[in-house]
Computed example of a mutant assay.
Amino acid sequence: MNSSLEPLRQSQAWVERFVVALDVCPFARRETERDSIRYVPVDASDVEHLLLTLIEECRHLDASPQTETTLLVLIAGAEDFAHYLDCLDLGETLLEQQGYEGTYQLASFHPDYVFGGTAPDDPANYTNRSPWPMLHILREASIERALAHFPRPERIPERNVALMRKLGIESLAARLDDLKRS
């Protein structure tokens, strides 16, 4: 297989075998079954290129209602978590500046994700750990529709944290490592 496709293949496997299999996002199964998730590789070494790609993908989503969401898979240039967070902040600011606030929002995933106020080895961080750094472009209208039909959506993060802590750091690290080797 072409090595440039590895990050996309591993990211798709993570969505299917981690996010959907563990029901981390109760809305992801439907979109994987519909094949409505777009995976786009981006070299984030050039932050301007990353931001241009982000806006191009928003425009793609504007023109393609059959595509529910896009995962920008950052194949280079975002390995450092602090730098990744800077890119995320720039992306969110750009969405606002381009008039996409209220239309799209970004969810963030990174192999070294650490929530503020948690230790790096807290299993709860695995709710946002992925094999590759990613910016996930979500349609806000879809989120609102899904949450309106989901009982007690505020419990989703609580449930995920409890699940990650039950699975434990060793098990979760092994799952992520397996996805990177598959």
Rank of each mutant, 00 (worst) to 15 (best):
F150V: 09
A82N: 09
I137S: 03
P123H: 05
C58M: 03
L85Y: 02
I169C: 07
A82I: 12
D121R: 08
F150I: 09
L52T: 12
L94T: 06
E101D: 13
A173C: 05
L88E: 08
E57Q: 15
N128K: 06
D80A: 07
L172P: 11
G99I: 13
H60F: 15
G102P: 04
S171K: 13
E48G: 11
E92A: 06
N125Q: 05
G168V: 08
R59E: 15
E170L: 14
A63T: 14
F150Q: 11
L135I: 03
T93C: 09
V161P: 01
V161T: 08
S64N: 15
I156W: 04
Q97Y: 10
K180R: 15
C58N: 04
S171C: 13
M164P: 02
G77L: 12
G102C: 04
M164T: 06
A78G: 04
D122H: 04
S130I: 07
H149N: 15
A82G: 07
S182I: 11
M164H: 07
A107T: 00
E68K: 07
I156G: 05
G116H: 10
T93I: 14
I55L: 13
Q97A: 14
T53S: 14
P131L: 04
L54I: 07
R145S: 12
D177V: 10
A82T: 12
P153V: 04
P157E: 04
L167T: 10
P65L: 07
A63D: 15
H149G: 15
L50R: 03
T127L: 02
R155V: 14
T70Q: 01
E144M: 13
I55V: 15
T67W: 05
A63K: 11
L74F: 05
D112E: 13
E154L: 05
L94E: 11
L85P: 02
E57V: 00
R165F: 05
A162Y: 05
S142I: 01
A146V: 06
S64F: 06
L95S: 06
G77M: 12
L95A: 03
L85V: 02
Y113V: 08
A146T: 12
P120H: 09
I156M: 03
P133N: 10
V161L: 09
A76Y: 03
P123T: 06
T53W: 03
C87R: 06
